[in-house]
Amino acid sequence: MINSPYEKYRQSSVKTSTPSQLLIMLFDGAIRFVRAGMEGIDSVDYQKTNINLGKAQTIVSELMSTLDPTYDISKSLYDLYEYINHLLIQANVKKDKVPAEEALQYLTEFRVTWLEASKLVPTHEKTHG
């Protein structure tokens, strides 16, 4: 049961979002978790680092699993997502911000790109679950 008004809003938001809005939400989450993981490295809170970089990896893995292989671009995107995941693993294992910063840069660029692309898609097309 959902008790928090924020949780109710968040679930409603997910259910009424377009596919491109959902994709941007995933990038927002990954970016937020990478930043939190980097904060953990800075503050030597390795539990925080591990939890948040792990959550970012989960999102990147989800992005990889939802690619449609019938499109040529999917292979390139898969390879880039795989590299971002590798960077996140390296940052987590070595407790090193450098690979996390590189991953963050890619995630931020992807978010900007998808945000721009979403403006080209008609907004009346909503997903229904």
Score class of each variant (00 low, 15 high):
82 E>A: 12
39 E>H: 00
36 A>N: 05
72 D>M: 03
91 A>Y: 01
68 D>R: 11
120 L>C: 03
93 V>I: 14
56 A>H: 01
27 F>I: 14
42 D>Y: 01
75 K>C: 05
35 R>K: 10
7 E>M: 15
85 N>P: 03
23 L>P: 06
32 R>C: 05
51 I>K: 05
18 T>C: 10
43 S>I: 06
104 L>D: 06
52 N>P: 08
95 K>H: 10
34 V>K: 00
104 L>V: 04
91 A>Q: 08
26 L>I: 03
21 Q>K: 14
96 D>A: 03
14 V>F: 11
47 Q>T: 08
114 W>M: 14
120 L>Q: 10
40 G>V: 06
121 V>G: 04
45 D>I: 02
42 D>C: 04
88 L>I: 12
69 P>E: 06
106 Y>H: 14
54 G>V: 08
40 G>K: 01
29 G>W: 09
122 P>Y: 06
100 A>M: 05
15 K>R: 11
34 V>R: 00
111 R>L: 11
94 K>E: 14
114 W>T: 13
84 I>E: 02
79 D>C: 06
34 V>E: 00
105 Q>K: 10
73 I>E: 11
48 K>E: 14
106 Y>W: 12
106 Y>T: 13
2 I>W: 13
47 Q>Y: 13
28 D>L: 14
108 T>Y: 04
62 E>H: 11
50 N>Y: 10
68 D>E: 13
56 A>L: 02
